[in-house]
Design a protein around this nucleic acid. Structure first.
Length: 455
RNA sequence: GUGGUUGUAGCUCAGUUGGUUAGAGCGCCUGGUUGUGGUUCAGGAGGUCGUGGGUUCGAUUCCCAUCUUCCACCCCA
C-alpha cells in the first residue's frame, strides 16, 4: 500500500470491465448522432491560452488547467507580478497554453479557422475528454468526457427539436427509465429582467433564480438582494416562483407577464413552436418540461437552454446544452448562430451503475473459451477458433493445458458464457463439447454443426 | 478558491485509552476432485496501519505538514 503509485487527484484509470460499459455508452451516443447527420471531428487537448480564457466567466477561468511553458519561455516569468501577489498575471506570464475546459469553445475556434472547408449548416459531433481544476466530488471529476453535438450556421428552430429528440433517443436506448429534459430560453430571462427594469442585472438575476429548487424562494430573494437587485424588481419577479401547471399553461402566463417585452415574447414564441413540434412527433421516454428558473451558468447562451436530469438519482445534471448566437464572433466570424448539446458520459455511467442498467451482454466480450487439454487438442481447437473468427465470433483458447479447474475459473471470472471442451474423445470423433456456463448444460456436436450454428 | 471529512490486507471494514506476534468477511493461492467453474470442506499467502517530519524510553495510535477520498459552499457534466 505504502509505495503504491496513484493517479492525479480527480482522475481515474478505467479497467476493462468499466471500459466496455463506457464504450457501450459512447457507441449508443455516436449511433444516434450519426442518424441525425452529425459528422465527427477532434481538436487538440491543449489550446492557446487566449482561445480559452475569458469565455466562461470569471469562475470558469479559474477552473482552467494551465500548461506551464517550457525551456527559455519560462524566463518570461513576471516576477514583479509574483511579488505583488498578482497571481493570475504571474500565471499568464509563464503559461501560454491550457487544457480545454469544454468542447464548445474549441469548436467555435475550429469553425472560424476552417470556415472555407466546411459546409454550413455544419453539424459535428465530438467525444473527447475535458479538464477542470475543480475540487472533485461524487460525479465530479477533473478529467471527464463530453459527448457534444452542435450545429453552426443556422438559427432554424428545427435543430432545437432534433436535439431534444436526440436526448430522448440516446437515454431511452441506454435504458434510463425516468428522466426530464428541462428547457428554457435566455430571451425569456432577458424579458424578465426587462419587465423588472433591471436589464443590466440579467446575469445576477439568472444565477440567483437558477438556484430555486436548491435554496428555495427565500434563498433566491436573499441572493437577489445581495446582488443589488431592487425591491421593486424582486416583487415583479415574485409571480414566477409560483409558475406551475402544464407547459402550455406556463407559456400562456408568460405571454401576459412579458407583454411589454419584445425579446421576452420572442422567446415565448420560439419555445411554443418547439413544444408544438415535439408534441406532434412524440417522445419515447423523456418528459419535456418548461422551467423558467433554468438559467445555466455559461454566459454564451442566447436562446434555448437545455438541461437533462435523471429522476430518482442524487447527481447533478447529466446533459446540457443551448443556443449561442455569436460564439464564433469572439474569434472574428460573426453572424453564425449555433446550437448544441452535451452528454456527460461519466455521470451517465454513474447513474446507470446505480440503477443497474447495463445489460449483461455488454460484459460478454468473448463468447467461447476453448479449454486446453494438450498439444494436439490445442491445434484442433485453433482450427475451429479460426472458423469462428471468420464468422466474427469472438473466442479465445487457453494457452496452456493447466488444471481444468483453473481454466473454468478463468472463463467464469471473465464472464465468458460458453466453454468449448476438446479432449481426446472429441479429437478422435471430430466433435466438440459445448458447456453453457450459466446453466451448466452440456452438449456434444460435430465441429461442422458447431460452426454452422453461427452462419 | 472557502470550510469540513477520510486513509489499517486486493476489496469492505473492526481494533489499539501510546507498550512484546494488528483482526474479520469477501477475494486470491493450494488440496479433497489427474475431463468440469459458480456450491462445500481443509489448509495457506498477503499489512514498516496513506506519506514525510515532530513529541516520547517507545507512535499505527498524540502533534504538524503533505497527498488522497468524500461532503457543503462556489461553480458545473
Amino acid at each position: 500500500m505504502s509505495k503504491k503509485p496513484g493517479t492525479f487527484k480527480g482522475t481515474r484509470d478505467f479497467l476493462p470491465e468499466t471500459m466496455v460499459k463506457r464504450n457501450y455508452i459512447f457507441d449508443t451516443i455516436k449511433t444516434v448522432f450519426r442518424k441525425y447527420g452529425f459528422l465527427p471531428i477532434e481538436t487538440p487537448s491543449v489550446e492557446k491560452r487566449e482561445t480559452l480564457m475569458g469565455k466562461y466567466g470569471e469562475e470558469g477561468d479559474r477552473l482552467i488547467f494551465r500548461v506551464l511553458n517550457s525551456g527559455d519561455k519560462l524566463k518570461k516569468a513576471d516576477q514583479d507580478a509574483l511579488n505583488n501577489n498578482e497571481l493570475p498575471k504571474f500565471a499568464n506570464s509563464i503559461s501560454d497554453q491550457a487544457l480545454r475546459y469544454d468542447l464548445t469553445v474549441p469548436f467555435a475556434r475550429f469553425v472560424v479557422q476552417h470556415q472555407n472547408d466546411l459546409d454550413f449548416p455544419f453539424k459535428r459531433y465530438q467525444i473527447q475528454p475535458v479538464w477542470r481544476a475543480d475540487r472533485p466530488q461524487k460525479g465530479r471529476y477533473r478529467e471527464f468526457y463530453q459527448c457534444d453535438a452542435d450545429v453552426v450556421g443556422s438559427d432554424a428552430l428545427i435543430y432545437e427539436v432534433e436535439l431534444i429528440q436526440i436526448f430522448d433517443e440516446v437515454l431511452t436506448n441506454l435504458g434510463l427509465p425516468d428522466f426530464s429534459i428541462k428547457i428554457n430560453n435566455r430571451k425569456i430571462l432577458s424579458g424578465i429582467a426587462e419587465v423588472c427594469g433591471e436589464s443590466d442585472k440579467l446575469v445576477p438575476i439568472t444565477v440567483a433564480i437558477d438556484k430555486l429548487d436548491k435554496i428555495g424562494k427565500d434563498g433566491v430573494i436573499k441572493e437577489l438582494i445581495e446582488r443589488g437587485v431592487s425591491n421593486d424588481a424582486i416583487e415583479k419577479i415574485d409571480p414566477l416562483f409560483q409558475l406551475s401547471g402544464t407547459n402550455t399553461e406556463k407559456l400562456d402566463l408568460l405571454k401576459s407577464y412579458l407583454a411589454d417585452s419584445e425579446i421576452g415574447l420572442k422567446g415565448v414564441e420560439e419555445l411554443e413552436w418547439v413544444f408544438n413540434q415535439v408534441e406532434t412527433l412524440g417522445l419515447k421516454q423523456a418528459k419535456l418540461e418548461l422551467e423558467v428558473t433554468l438559467a445555466r451558468g455559461l454566459n454564451y447562451y442566447t436562446g434555448a437552454i437545455f438541461e437533462v436530469s435523471a429522476n430518482n438519482v442524487q447527481i447533478g445534471s447529466i446533459c446540457g446544452g443551448g443556443r449561442y448566437d455569436d460564439l464564433t464572433a469572439l474569434f472574428g466570424l460573426s453572424g453564425l448562430s449555433g446550437v448544441g448539446i452535451s452528454f456527460g458520459a461519466d455521470r451517465i455511467y454513474d447513474v446507470m451503475t446505480e440503477l443497474d442498467l447495463f445489460p449483461s451482454s455488454v460484459t460478454n466480450t468473448t463468447t467461447y473459451l476453448f479449454i486446453n487439454f494438450g498439444t494436439e487438442e490445442q491445434i484442433y481447437s485453433m482450427q475451429i477458433a479460426a472458423g469462428l473468427r471468420r464468422l466474427d465470433i469472438p473466442c479465445e483458447i487457453y494457452p496452456e493445458p493447466k488444471a481444468m479447474k483453473k481454466q473454468m475459473k478463468y472463463a467464469n471470472n471473465r464472464h465468458i458464457p460458453f466453454v468449448v471442451l476438446v479432449g481426446s474423445d472429441e479429437l478422435k470423433n471430430g466433435t466438440v463439447t459445448l458447456k453453457n456456463m450459466v446453466t451448466g448444460e452440456q452438449e456434444t456436436l460435430t465441429k461442422e454443426d458447431f460452426l454452422n450454428k453461427h452462419k
